[in-house]
C-alpha cells in the first residue's frame, strides 16, 4: 500500500463516532494538530491558513438534520486544506421521499469521498452507517448521543484559557438529558481528570449521569453546581427534542436556569463562560453575560474550524506525494473497526 505520513498513524482511516471510544492519546493528538491551525488564542491572532495538504480529496457533508454552524465550520475546514466539498442537505431530499437510510448512504459512498460527515436527529445513525462503509465517518452530532467535534473544540478553548483540564471544575447547566454536547464534553473532561458538575431542571438532569463517567456529580440547583467553577458551560434548551412539557414556559425556565451575572458571581472570579450555540438570549444566558469579557464563545467558533481541520488531516491523511492508490487498495488500506 502507498506510504502514509507515518507521523500520524493513530487515527488514519478510523471513524470518529464519539469521544467515549477515544483514548486520551487520540484526543491529545487531535488537539495538538488543531493548535497549528488556530487563528485566535488568548495570546495571538494568526492569519487564516490556506493549504493544499488534502488537495484532490473529497469531503461529503451529509446533514440529515438542519444545521448552519457545524456545517459551515466543516466546509471552511475542508476548504482551508484544499479539499473539495460536496454539501448535501438531506433533510429535504431523498430521505423525505422514503429512500432507506442505507440506500442513501450507499449512494454517498459511491461518490468515493475520502471522509463523510454525518449529522442525524437519531442517536446511533453514524454507528449504523459505520457498519456498512470503510469511508471514515465523522459524527457531527447524532440525536441526543454525542457531538465529538464540539467537545474537542471546547477542550481546546478551555486549555487555552485555563492551561489544562486536570482538576478543572466545569459546571454544565441546562438540558443535559437531550444534549449530545453534554455527553461528549463529560466523556472528554472526565478522561483528563476534570470534575464535572451538572444542574438544570430536575427531569432534564437524571441521576444516572453520575454513572456516565468518573468525577460527574448531579446537583439539585444551579447555585450548587456553579460554586467554585472554573468553566461554566450553558446548554441550549432543546425545545425541538422535548416530547413532553418539562417546564412551564420559557419565562419560567429563564427565572430559574438563565445564567445571569448574579448567578455567575458564584463561580470563580476568573471563570470563563461557554455556550455551544445557538443561544437563546434572556432564556438560557443573559445578554450581558454572553457579551461580557468572561464569554469565550467567539473562541469556540474559531477553534471549531481548527479542530475540524485537524480531524480531516488525521482521518483522511495526505498520501505523501505518491500517486493516488487504486480504488481497491485504497479501501483495503483502511483499518477495520
Amino acid at each position: 500500500m502507498p506510504a502514509r505520513n507515518t507521523a500520524l498513524p493513530r487515527l488514519a482511516g478510523r471513524h470518529l463516532l464519539g469521544i467515549e471510544p477515544l483514548a486520551p492519546e487520540d484526543i491529545e493528538l487531535i488537539l495538538a494538530t488543531a493548535q497549528k491551525y488556530q487563528t485566535r488564542t488568548p495570546r495571538a491572532v494568526r492569519p487564516v491558513p490556506r493549504l493544499d495538504l488534502l488537495r484532490g480529496k473529497t469531503l461529503v457533508l451529509a446533514f440529515f438534520e438542519a444545521s448552519t454552524r457545524t456545517r459551515v465550520s466543516f466546509e471552511m475546514a475542508a476548504q482551508r486544506l484544499g479539499m473539495d466539498v460536496v454539501n448535501l442537505a438531506l433533510e429535504a431530499s431523498s430521505v423525505q421521499k422514503g429512500e432507506s437510510l442505507l440506500d442513501t448512504v450507499k449512494t454517498l459512498v459511491a461518490m468515493r469521498p475520502d471522509a463523510l460527515v454525518i449529522r442525524h436527529r437519531s442517536s446511533g445513525v453514524p454507528h449504523f452507517l459505520a457498519r456498512h462503509t470503510d469511508v471514515p465517518i465523522l459524527n457531527a452530532g447524532d440525536g441526543t448521543h454525542e457531538h465529538p467535534t464540539q467537545a474537542l473544540l471546547d477542550a481546546l478553548t478551555m486549555r487555552d484559557h485555563k492551561g489544562g483540564l486536570k482538576g478543572l471544575r466545569v459546571a454544565i447547566l441546562g438540558d443535559i438529558l437531550h444534549s449530545r454536547v453534554a455527553r461528549s464534553n463529560i466523556h472528554l473532561l472526565s478522561k483528563f481528570g476534570a470534575r464535572i458538575a451538572l444542574a438544570g431542571p430536575p427531569p432534564l438532569v437524571p441521576k444516572d449521569f453520575e454513572r456516565l463517567a468518573p468525577s460527574v456529580t448531579v446537583h439539585a440547583g444551579l447555585e450548587d453546581a456553579l460554586r467554585e467553577a472554573d468553566v461554566v458551560m450553558i446548554l441550549r434548551v432543546q425545545l425541538e427534542r422535548l416530547r413532553e412539557p418539562l417546564f412551564a414556559s420559557p419565562a419560567e425556565y429563564a427565572r430559574h436556569y438563565c445564567l445571569t451575572p448574579a448567578r455567575l458571581a458564584l463561580a470563580k472570579p476568573d471563570a470563563i463562560v461557554m455556550h455551544p450555540g445557538p443561544f437563546l438570549r434572556g432564556i438560557d444566558i443573559a445578554g450581558e453575560v454572553a457579551d461580557s469579557e468572561r464569554s469565550v464563545i467567539p473562541d469556540q467558533v474559531e477553534n471549531g474550524v481548527a479542530v475540524r481541520m485537524a480531524l480531516l488531516e488525521l482521518l483522511a491523511p495526505p498520501t505523501a506525494g505518491l500517486a493516488p492508490p487504486a480504488p481497491e487498495s485504497g479501501k483495503a488500506g483502511k483499518k477495520k473497526k
Binding site: E20, G143, H145, R183, D208
Partner: peptide, 18 residues
C-alpha cells in the same frame, strides 16, 4: 413508555436513547 426505544437506565442515558 411513550417514545422509549430501550430500557431506561444508565445505558439509555449513555447512548442518548429514550
Amino acid at each position: 413508555a411513550a417514545g422509549g426505544v430501550m430500557h431506561e437506565g444508565p445505558w439509555s442515558v449513555r447512548l442518548g436513547l429514550h
